[in-house]
Design a protein around this nucleic acid. Sequence first.
DNA 1: TGCGCATATGTCTTGACAGGCATATGCCTG
DNA 2: CAGGCATATGCCTGTCAAGACATATGCGCA
Lengths: 103, 103
Amino acid sequence: MPVDAFAVLAEPARRRILDELRVADRSVGELVTALTISQPTVSKHLKVLRDAGFVSSRSAAQQRIYHVEPAQFAALDEWLAPYRRLWTKHLDKLARHLDTMEQ
Amino acid sequence: MPVDAFAVLAEPARRRILDELRVADRSVGELVTALTISQPTVSKHLKVLRDAGFVSSRSAAQQRIYHVEPAQFAALDEWLAPYRRLWTKHLDKLARHLDTMEQ
DNA sequence: TGCGCATATGTCTTGACAGGCATATGCCTG
DNA sequence: CAGGCATATGCCTGTCAAGACATATGCGCA
């Protein structure tokens, strides 16, 4: 992770952009109308997301179409992995407890 | 998520604390020596982590022992889930591509 | 090539937050 | 109950980033 992925996602507006792009690729203008944020603000957030590798863009005439880049999310998932063990262990314990109660 | 989980994790020091607590429960003093951060700073980060539900503490004499609370990580994982579909799809595509090449 | 649309960038102000330091609180032991 | 240890909290300052606004750039079309 070149730039801090968590810092990038800390901004709610950026997560809303990602939620939008997850459904389908979108032009900047579409994002602006979908999210009701000013155009310069959207462009700046997109730049941050691009620099962090969360999205990439292609040009289509005067428009730029953005789409989600899955790799960064996979990196996030890797960070989460060791903690996942903690809560699955927790769930196992819970399951065993329930099994005990059934008897 | 009552407070913004991503904003909480955006601070590197807090992630270091979690990495430490993931291995084993620790007192505040142990964290201070392990991370080489001032004691007040550690306490403040712990408060943020506590308020966000990432950790909880129990008292042992004058010490407070902190430990990781898995639920918040599970919440994070849920947020990540819809994106996970994106990159597994991506991997599927890659696998199919490799299959094609083998023939 | 000049105009208009879509997007990017620069500047400024303001607010939030982290760290340093001093100090308060809680708890145990002599 | 006094003193000391472990931890929490309050105050202050510097830093950084987000949003508003103005403006620059890129691209297509008449």
